[in-house]
Design a protein around this nucleic acid. Structure first.
Lengths: 240, 240
DNA sequence: CGAAGGGTTGATCAATTTCAATCGCGGTGG
DNA sequence: CCACCGCGATTGAAATTGATCAACCCTTCG
């Protein structure tokens, strides 16, 4: 199985064979999580660094009202909680959205890793900054985009991210999650998401079937979303 | 004039007198910006690192529809665009919300600074991570909080941040911006912000007058907001 | 077969936007 | 000193979006 974490960091910084070997060793200790299982919960003491190797994971927070907001999707190759040592307790939870395989790197190991391998540290830092760009885009979406634009925008983002790590086919990618998850990520209702998806299907832009998304008309989807791929640090390849 | 950037970094990491001296030298070259003047615009080639020394600054993006979304408020001591070298062009703009004094540090200078002074690099990294926590909180607010909760939450955040840098009095802080700015930050209409502010005044939680915010009943405000100061890495001091 | 979870639908409700004035105040030119 | 201007604040009414409530359907799974 390819190590998508190593792959990703390699693209962000020039890693020596030694760096690669060290990273591979560090991500060797893995653990499987069931769908909906928490890697860590709000209120827990921050633990190790998690690196997603397979499956989808999310950061989320439950509000007093009981509603949930997902703040980030983590796909294979994405890491979380480098800031492990910052907080006395987690201000949000991290949960597997599908069955997931996750590498677990202790805090100290990660720190020495970054200390001894500047190229790795640089790559991690860059990854962090890209994630920030994604968060900013989410803020813009939630603040100023209509529900259909929001859905379209997220789908553009996820498609490109999936594609970057080789998980997307041509105009299609696996999205093995319920519409409720989508709703929680976009700050909408499952009911409303459902109607928006129907609308997107009607316009012929995209369709979500059980477990996968079809980007039928990428140009149209990008247009609806007002999507500018720039922030993902990738080129959009119009292959469809 | 105290250098709030140095202050802030000192609190995040143990800086040697040497580190401090170097930082002070680096932030010596400053520039004044008028209200509404752009430090850098979307589409521009990323330039130097900006460090806000006085005044308020924001990151923002204008959508095709012409609406604006503010993604972050920067207060004295906050820096932006460490990721200067990442993107070919800015995916958002940065603008002064008030008259502002900003230190300008060239990209190369900043890089050598961080290379030669690990404590500074560490502090900057930590600052970055705290900013991320703030962004996550914004996402939660925009996604799942009602308008009154959103306003209250932002005010709690800003009050604490102002307080942390010594810019807030007791239950009061300067907020020299129009309600439109608030609207653009919270993804709402100026009209609606206005009504929400009236509601907050009525409940006796807080009041915004021209140029400053009065936290009248902090407990009540925190309660309305569902605010948990945790993520700001500070204790809330109930002094009122 | 029955239960459960997810998807879909329709009807209604509520929050927020939109549109259109009006108000108030500081600044400016005469 | 005063009329005029322009921006930001405020108000009211109508229009829209999205949430809520309540079924119902379908497929999977035990």
């Amino acid at each position: 199985m390819i190590n998508r974490f190593v792959n990703k960091l390699s693209e962000l910084s020039d890693l020596s064979p030694r760096d690669v070997a060290v990273l591979e060793a560090a991500t060797a200790r893995t653990r499987k999580y069931a769908q909906r299982q928490d890697l860590i919960r709000e209120g827990d003491e921050p633990g190790p660094v998690f690196v997603v190797l397979e499956g989808w994971v999310c950061r989320y927070k439950i509000l007093p009202s009981g509603t949930r907001q997902i703040m980030a999707f983590l796909m294979p190759g994405d890491a979380c909680d480098l800031h492990v040592n910052l907080l006395p307790e987690m201000d949000h939870g991290i949960q597997a959205l599908t069955i997931a395989k996750v590498a677990i790197i202790s805090r100290t190991e990660m720190l020495t890793l970054m200390n001894d391998h500047p190229a790795i540290a640089r790559a991690m830092y860059t990854a962090q900054l890209i994630d920030e760009g994604v968060m900013r885009a989410w803020i813009v979406s939630m603040g100023r985009r209509s529900s259909i634009e929001r859905v379209a925008h997220l789908m553009c983002e996820l498609y490109l991210r999936a594609r970057n790590i080789g998980l997307a086919g041509d105009g299609e990618f696996a999205f093995p999650m319920s519409q409720l998850v989508l709703a929680d990520a976009l700050g909408m209702t499952a009911v409303h998401i459902n109607r928006v998806l129907q609308e997107l299907r009607l316009t012929g832009a995209m369709a979500l079937h059980r477990g996968s998304v079809d980007i039928i008309d990428p140009i149209k989807l990008v247009h609806i979303a007002g999507f500018d791929e720039n922030y993902l640090h990738r080129r959009l390849r119009h292959t469809a």
